[in-house]
Computed example of a mutant assay.
Amino acid sequence: MKALIQRVSAARVEVAGEVVGAIDQGLLALVGIEPQDDAESVARMLHRLLNYRVFADAEGRMNRSLKDVGGGLLLVSQFTLAADTKSGLRPSFSSAAPPAQGEALFDALVARAREQHPQVATGRFGANMQVHLVNDGPVTFLLEV
């Protein structure tokens, strides 16, 4: 499982012109699920998302987590993160989880996140989404579990 996280001052996801998920300060996480991922991957990724220290402390150092700052978490499924891009000029998606597995694990991640964090929003699995964000920093990291 991979998550491309971006520290944002605001982010939202639209589907067909309708806002389906939005947050103010927090993290936007684009989530890619691979065939070997399972419930343990979900638990490890959620722990990292909630506790990864990317927010500034009083001295301006990245020492505070999403839990520490009470920010929002916007989870967006993005199977293209699992693409094989090592060769050629076109991505291969054979390294991405099949849609049924990807949706089940993404739904599990969302459910667990909502149990553990008060502000969780999502995109819509499998939809053509427009993601709008204000990257704060910019700060972007690729997390892998």
Rank of each mutant, 00 (worst) to 15 (best):
A22E: 15
A113E: 04
S65C: 10
M62L: 13
L81G: 13
V69Y: 05
V120I: 15
F55L: 06
G21I: 12
V139T: 10
L89C: 06
P138C: 10
A113W: 01
A43T: 08
G17D: 13
M1T: 05
V139E: 01
D68V: 12
G17Q: 09
S95L: 14
S77N: 06
P91N: 04
P138V: 10
R48P: 02
L4M: 14
T80G: 12
V42W: 05
Q119P: 06
A111V: 05
L28G: 02
S41L: 09
L27R: 07
L142Y: 12
E14S: 12
L143W: 04
S95H: 15
R48H: 11
V54K: 00
E34N: 01
F141S: 00
K2Q: 11
G102N: 11
L75A: 06
L50T: 01
S87M: 13
L133E: 03
I23E: 10
L50Q: 05
V54H: 00
T122Y: 02
P91D: 11
L50F: 04
F106C: 06
A39K: 14
R7Q: 03
L28M: 11
Y52H: 15
D38S: 13
G32P: 02
P118Q: 09
K67T: 14
N51E: 13
A104M: 14
L133R: 00
S41R: 08
G137D: 07
V69G: 09
L66E: 02
N135T: 13
P91K: 07
A100I: 09
V31G: 01
V76P: 01
N63F: 06
F106K: 05
F125G: 03
A10W: 03
A11L: 09
M1F: 04
T122N: 02
Q36L: 07
Q25W: 08
G72F: 02
Q116G: 10
S95N: 15
S92D: 11
L133T: 04
E103S: 01
F55P: 00
A3V: 11
A111Q: 15
V54F: 01
V13F: 05
G26L: 03
E14T: 15
G21C: 11
V76W: 00
A127K: 13
T85F: 14
E34K: 06
G123A: 09
L143T: 03
L75T: 03
K2Y: 12
